[in-house]
């Protein structure tokens, strides 16, 4: 039985797809057979972030409508073994994802995968609700910014009331906070909510803090999950987050401003 992880946030543009790509790749790198599913019907983008946009033939909705088999639609990642991508459909029909259809696909994947990562669309509409309904674990991606934190709290409310686990009376979905686009210098200057502030408000366990980094845009330009760039802080921070997701106790890094020498401080240099 695969574990189903939903990467969700409520607000758009906070880094759900980037995080889904990184977490999925990180799990596959550790030897787990992993599938990443793009739930954003109509606005497919996971394929671009993973660099497999030209290899899409069939998609999630084709599988649900039985126009293709799951094996035909799954794209095997070229860089990372054990990793597969199921792209979203570009149809404009919002109701293309049916509850039974999604369940059937997840059941079939569950048989020979270890992890299924569901990349949720933004918002709290049907697509987002479908992405989190069958989840065992939720990664709530949040920016240290008021609207993102508020929307994350809304999503937490949905995770606590509208999931298969709640309805079946099972243990609730495990919730994890992933803070992205974190800028320690601005936090120190009192211009940005700190990790502690966001933890205080949302009150769920922290799984990782991804520093704001040029590497993220560079990686998406190239269609490569940023976790593969282990030279960068963002890549390392995602690796740490994956380790914590698997239960390892890893200390948080990149939370503080790099210490500067006395003269640099005096001169106000960067």
């Amino acid at each position: 039985m695969a574990k189903i992880i939903v990467v969700t946030s409520g607000k758009g543009g906070v880094g759900k797809t980037t995080s889904s790509a990184a977490i999925g790749t990180g799990l596959a790198l550790r030897g787990f057979k992993t599938a990443i599913i793009d739930f954003d019907v109509g606005l497919r983008n996971l394929d671009l972030i993973m660099g497999c946009e030209r290899r899409v033939v069939y998609d999630f909705v084709n599988v649900i409508n039985k126009e293709a088999t799951l094996n035909q639609a799954l794209i095997k990642d070229k860089r990372t073994p054990n990793l597969f991508i199921l792209p979203a459909s570009q149809t404009r029909d919002k109701d293309a994802l049916s509850q039974e259809g999604v369940q059937a696909v997840l059941n079939e994947l569950s048989r020979d995968f270890d992890y299924i990562v569901c990349d949720s669309p933004a918002g709290i509409e049907k697509g987002a609700q479908m992405a989190l309904y069958y989840a065992d674990i939720a990664v709530v991606v949040t920016n240290p910014e008021v609207s993102s934190v508020r929307d994350s709290d809304r999503i937490l409310g949905i995770l606590q009331s509208k999931t298969r686990r709640v309805e079946a009376g099972e243990e609730p979905v495990q919730e994890h906070l992933l803070l992205t686009r974190y800028n320690p210098a601005r936090v120190q200057a009192g211009e940005m909510l700190s990790v502690q502030d966001v933890e205080d408000i949302l009150a769920i366990p922290l799984i990782g803090v991804i520093p704001e980094s040029e590497a993220v845009l560079k990686a998406s330009n190239q269609g490569m999950p940023v976790i593969l760039d282990q030279e960068t802080e963002a890549g390392q921070a995602y690796s740490d987050a994956v380790a914590r997701l698997l239960g390892d106790a890893v200390e948080h890094r990149f939370l503080d401003v790099q210490k500067k020498g006395f003269f640099k401080r005096l001169l106000g240099g960067k």
Partner: peptide, 19 residues
Amino acid sequence: NTSASVAKERLQIIVAHER
């Protein structure tokens, strides 16, 4: 009174209300 502490205070109020 940094802008971050203002943000935190506003968030705590609205989130508690919405919960």
